Measured scan of single mutants.
Amino acid sequence: HNGKLCKLKGIAPLQLGKCNITGWLLGNPECDSLLPARSWSYIVETPNSENGACYPGDLIDYEELREQLSSVSSLERFEIFPKESSWPNHTFNGVTVSCSHRGKSSFYRNLLWLTKKGDSYPKLTNSYVNNKGKEVLVLWGVHHPSSSDEQQSLYSNGNAYVSVASSNYNRRFTPEIAARPKVRDQHGRMNYYWTLLEPGDTIIFEATGNLIAPWYAFALSRGFESGIITSNASMHECNTKCQTPQGAINSNLPFQNIHPVTIGECPKYVRSTKLRMVTGLRNIPSIQYRGLFGAIAGFIEGGWTGMIDGWYGYHHQNEQGSGYAADQKSTQNAINGITNKVNSVIEKMNTQFTAVGKEFNNLEKRMENLNKKVDDGFLDIWTYNAELLVLLENERTLDFHDLNVKNLYEKVKSQLKNNAKEIGNGCFEFYHKCDNECMESVRNGTYDYPKYSEESKLNREKIDGVKLESMGVYQILAIYSTVASSLVLLVSLGAISFWMCSNGSLQCRICI
């Protein structure tokens, strides 16, 4: 991952900044910058967002509201009850120091605090018919004063009620008058409520006091790749198909172990950190130390980045220098085999997901714990399936590479015959000098055995068991695999060879 928040398929997220979902939807004055928000790819909250409900109280069923919003990608904020005409018999300019803005008392931008007009609070009834052709999110509140005197001074009615009804919602609220500790300079409380109004449905408000009335509502448009994440990451000019709280993932790998919460087309989250597919040879310690064997393909974004291909070729060293050249036929066979294998694994496992966190309130801790156990169970199954699949494929890959290298080895052996000696570690020792032209003939299969047989015969008789390297004779190393990324691999195959001279070296080696 890149540690950044990015656009998702070209669409920017909605960053709530210092506000949370509650503050944004109710219209906390400190969240005025969010009022123009219309569309987004996903919503970003920060872990310690401080601006929620400015007048103390709870947004009821907040967790369910977050779940609903996680599939919303755009909205239209509109005046559901026009301020100047909807409440002619009531005062609608209630403000509070708890919702101060720029040093002055204020109130929510989407709600109206209705109080008595003169000395009376006549029963009010108002309704709205949803003609938007889509779901409408309606929010309101109920004020709970701290004393009967406060109730009387604001609403005149000691036994007030609030009723809200639609086809799918029907509740009646009565204020709970009680002494409470002071929070944000208030002994009173406000509880906030919401409902989704279906197209064509009607919502009716009736009250004799204590109503925090809707002013603006939201017509919602769903987008199934949307979601809500909690993150401290910063926004950058970048684009992605998959976003996590820790950063964007741009990967076609089937798995990731970065974060379980994802938005967009994302690899499946697994616990494993070692889900690797081999593309090189079986481990040979001396070669492995030099980083030549054991190439791997990573299938977990965050564990290993991208696929690494092994390729086969020849390396030689003689009086004229040293050089490398790919054996294109065996390399292409290996590439085709690995590509098919990788595609097979991805096809089997690479279903892209959006995974969002589930919200539970403080009273639902047991449910949250149960949900976590269920999620953990599914996660263990996914991890096991992934590891088992790759384990089985790896064994076949190792066998496949062994065969490829063996074929190259036999190709060289059949040409050199007794003009060189096998020394048991995949290397041959020449009994004759071999210049670049000679080396090329070994690589392309045109090695002239009779041409060098007499010199080889004489050297075999002279050496008589002495280690060949100390006599200045020449080696050919018969097994060799270097490691390159897919891009470098293609470039390498396009070149005939490249040279690395070893000044004054008397050794001649050709490596497979």
Rank of each mutant, 00 (worst) to 15 (best):
A478Y: 03
S272Y: 10
Q243S: 07
Y384R: 06
K467M: 00
L489F: 12
T273L: 13
E410H: 03
F498P: 03
F400W: 14
S231L: 02
V466I: 15
L281H: 02
F498G: 08
G310L: 04
C511K: 03
I335E: 02
L477N: 01
V488C: 12
E368F: 10
N425G: 03
I381C: 04
L489V: 12
C508A: 14
R460H: 14
K329C: 05
Q288C: 02
V491P: 06
E469N: 13
G323H: 06
K433A: 14
K274A: 15
C238E: 08
T279H: 06
E454Y: 03
C434F: 05
F353H: 05
S492A: 14
N343M: 06
M500K: 07
V345Y: 15
I346W: 02
N503C: 04
G291W: 09
A248S: 15
N418M: 12
L403S: 06
Y474L: 12
V270C: 01
G321Q: 05
S453L: 15
N239H: 13
I496V: 14
T305D: 11
V374Y: 15
G306F: 07
S286M: 09
K372C: 02
G313V: 00
S456K: 08
S330F: 00
K348Q: 13
A386E: 13
N371P: 11
E347K: 05
L416D: 07
N394P: 03
A233H: 06
N340D: 04
T339E: 10
K274I: 05
Y449T: 12
I249Q: 01
C508I: 13
L389I: 13
R366H: 09
E454I: 13
R509M: 15
L458S: 14
R276E: 05
Q352A: 13
V405K: 09
G424Y: 11
E410M: 08
C511Y: 09
G357H: 02
V483P: 00
T244H: 09
H401Q: 10
N336Y: 05
Y474E: 07
G306V: 04
E395M: 07
K406C: 06
Q475N: 10
V390G: 01
L506C: 14
R290D: 00
P260L: 01
A478D: 09
E454W: 12
S486W: 06
N239K: 03
I512G: 00
G494W: 00
N283T: 06
I479A: 12
I338K: 10
V261N: 15
H315Q: 13
Q475P: 12
E265M: 12
G247V: 04
K372W: 03
